[in-house]
């Protein structure tokens, strides 16, 4: 199988690797870079556990090829905390009990983080729509909505 040299900037640092054409971005992140905060829940773009930001936009990294990320910027859950300071979305999830098992949480936070970049003060309906591609089996979403609202208020 053809191999490709790729360079991807992940959380601000450029990483290069030789990968097969079919190699998934989520495996590049988890297995090549060892950033295991991005999870795999379904392989079919439904659950959103693998959500990362690609050039600032949320994507499901289980259905993006690593070669498609060549020359682009990726941000994962590990990139949210800056200089020892939590991102407001992380604070929101902790303060509002927006997580239980924690498995969907990184993807959910990345989607929430991206929403708040686009929309400073989203309505509840906008929040629910934005996270509708991220499944959570534990929380019933009530406190996830509150967590995003907490982060929105914090950023004002």
């Amino acid at each position: 199988m053809a191999m490709h040299k790729i360079t991807v900037t992940v959380n601000g640092t450029a990483h290069s690797a030789e990968v097969e054409s079919r190699f998934l971005l989520v495996h590049f992140i988890r297995e090549v870079l060892g950033l295991t905060g991005t999870h795999i829940g379904c392989d079919t773009t439904h659950c959103g556990a693998c959500t990362v930001l690609l050039d600032g936009e949320p994507v499901k990294s289980c259905t993006v090829l690593a070669v498609q990320a060549h020359g682009r910027r990726v941000m994962t859950v590990e990139g949210l905390e800056r200089d020892g300071k939590l991102d407001p979305i992380q604070e929101g999830f902790m303060q509002e009990h927006g997580l239980q098992c924690g498995f969907c949480t990184p993807g959910m936070m990345m989607t929430g983080h991206a929403l708040l970049r686009r929309t400073k003060n989203p309505s509840e309906a906008e929040i629910r729509q934005a996270i509708s591609g991220n499944l959570c089996r534990c929380t019933g979403y009530v406190n996830i909505v509150k967590a995003v609202q907490y982060a929105a208020a914090k950023q004002q």
Partner: peptide
């Protein structure tokens, strides 16, 4: 009280089985 589990989970520092290599 806030959960003692959360600081690791919100940082992507949970350790699930597929994270073990």
């Amino acid at each position: 009280i806030k959960r003692k589990e959360d600081p690791r989970f919100i940082r992507g520092q949970g350790r699930y089985v597929d994270d073990i290599t």
